[in-house]
Design a binder for these strands. Structure first.
Lengths: 350, 350
DNA sequence: CTGAAAGCGCTAACAT
DNA sequence: ATGTTAGCGCTTTCAG
């Protein structure tokens, strides 16, 4: 029944001031005398008044809402990122309108709906935008930042970790660990992260005179990764090590090898992943992996977005943040790491 | 630069009709002749017009936004639920404003902000609302439904699974499997789900003449569950079986027992969980558990919410949906299950 | 500092 | 079926 919200008008009447006075008191930059403010506040409290954000947004043209598209939530990296993003945004007074682009649901449609809702900015996690879509956002003056996904598009900001470097170091680590036949269950090669990690891994191998024995695209999916692993290892010459394009697939690979093929890890085969999701530290997997700096990635994403919201002339920027190798027990490794010369390098950079 | 959105006015001018004609064409129930509609559509397309949802909501008083509060996302049950809820809501033309009540961040604050945004309804997953908060929502005329959490509050709708029944059947299953010393790492006893499962499990044991050897509150947290498991099993008389208040804790318990205490599952001890999250089927855990009907819970939640949005006089309702035992290998079980008499029962009910 | 007045972009009577 | 006229609840000139 109570469809009668209390409005600024009601408060004004009770406080004996004009409605615009009420508005001023509730507007950050508003100028009002101490007395007026006090009267208004009292009346507002008594009535339980809260400004209608919709009306405010309609005028100011800023909704303080950020649209967030996420592709999937079964890879623990994303719930984790979502949690952090939401917290960071909330701290800055923004709210999050989420869209899950699960299967083949139309990202284009979602972007349109976000635009309809006058979002102040858009974060696309692990989904890519067509040029056309990017245009539409730009036309609407809405900044977009890609999270954990790149794009050959100068209009869009993006935040990733240094996938090339990470995959390369994993490759070197495996070689240093004495592995010869090395295979890969790559991330989806249709995505920039998948391609970059693939590229980085191959380059890393060549940099130490090794090369890739076999590679199958696991498409970041558990079932595909599992079957890839079985195909890779069920032959006469199974690999000694497998690099997985992300942790999520690495878990599937480990399960398949251990329980379907009865192999031991790292006894029969070493496994490394990419991301360092919380589960990678669970003893059942204890996965050696590359840690993507989730916290820094989120902070950078939010900073970048805010900068562009506050100043539309700011240019889009691409960030590739540094990660680090996290050594656990799923892969046989060298006695010491980082290798001495590397150590020197990183000192030199300080 | 393009801060100049195209409005219904622009479209009207170009189409040579009134602005309200434009509105009618874009309003579901609007009456407009085929010709007008065509002209308007053409003009709108040419201009790239899309109605401003904010302005619309301001008038209609309905934002088509649902506020969703989630406590944590590290338990896979919730990302999963979020994904389903978001999809179900989207299908009905609603959007989701998410709030993560991670630590002790104020749920009250979040509810207020949702109210400020004129959400049409609120879903609270795994968080409880004080009576005061419930009042505030009711005063604003916003229906609330609790997901996977109950409350002694007649004003709030709630959707859970039949926690009592589920925990009871798990208890009976363990006893039938020949376990004598049975312990529990309970869900957080400060929550209704935690208490119901605890109650159900104890009742289930007594129903077959058994009782609980030990119980520690794991508070739905991984680390607490792990240490509880160690305390439970590190003594002279370790239990033969442990019931965990949810799968998330069960994984922690299994890891702790296997890797810290070197125990075998189910050789040394049987473990059962509650939820049947996707990970429970992973071979590393292969957890016997109670399947909460996530899909049905989500559908019921959305239906309930929609019903109350469309008709404010609808009374809040409490639903406890049926789940089912999922037998895997983490617990020693009886040769056959369901027990014959049970079988008869369920047939009788058809 | 404060009130009056003009909208933000749209929907919903109300006439025609 | 369509145009005209009021607003939704608020911010923001503009006078004073």
């Amino acid at each position: 029944m109570p469809r009668d919200r209390v409005t600024a008008m009601d408060v004004a009447a009770r406080a004996g001031v004009s409605q615009s006075a009420v508005s001023r008191v509730f507007t950050p930059g508003g100028s009002a005398s101490k007395e007026t403010a006090a009267k208004v506040r009292a009346a507002a409290d008594a009535l339980g008044y809260r400004p209608n954000v919709l009306a405010r947004s309609l005028i100011t043209g800023r909704s303080r809402i950020i649209g967030l598209v996420v592709a999937y939530l079964d890879n623990q990296f994303y719930p984790d990122a979502l949690e952090r993003l939401s917290a960071a945004l909330q701290k800055r007074g923004y709210h999050v309108l989420v869209f899950l682009a699960n299967n083949r649901s139309d990202v284009s449609e979602m972007i349109d709906q976000m635009l309809d809702h006058q979002v102040d900015g858009i974060i696309a996690a692990s989904v890519s935008l067509s040029n056309q879509l990017a245009d539409r956002c730009e036309a609407a003056g809405i900044p977009v930042v890609l999270f954990n996904r790149g794009q050959d598009n100068w209009r869009l900001s993006e935040v990733t970790s240094d996938n090339l470097q990470g995959a390369a170091e994993l490759a070197q680590y495996l070689v240093a660990g004495g592995h010869t036949r090395i295979a890969q269950v790559s991330g989806w090669l249709g995505s920039t992260t998948g391609r970059d990690r693939d590229r980085g891994f191959r380059d890393g191998l060549s940099s130490v005179g090794a090369d890739l024995a076999a590679s199958i695209d696991g498409r970041y999916a558990r079932s595909e990764a599992a079957s890839a692993a079985r195909r890779l290892c069920d032959g006469p010459h199974p690999p000694e090590a497998i690099f997985c394009g992300n942790d999520h697939m690495a878990f599937a690979v480990m399960d398949a090898l251990r329980f379907d093929l009865g192999m031991s890890i790292p006894g029969d085969v070493s496994i490394v992943g990419f991301d360092d999701v919380p589960m990678a530290a669970w003893k059942s997997y204890d996965l050696t992996t590359w840690s993507q700096p989730a916290r820094a990635m989120v902070d950078t994403t939010v900073d970048t977005l805010m900068a562009r919201i506050d100043d539309r002339t700011t240019h889009p920027k691409k960030h590739a943040l540094p990660g680090r190798l996290v050594i656990r027990t799923s892969a046989r490794g060298p006695a010491t790491w980082p290798r001495p010369d590397k150590q020197g390098d990183s000192h030199a950079r300080l």
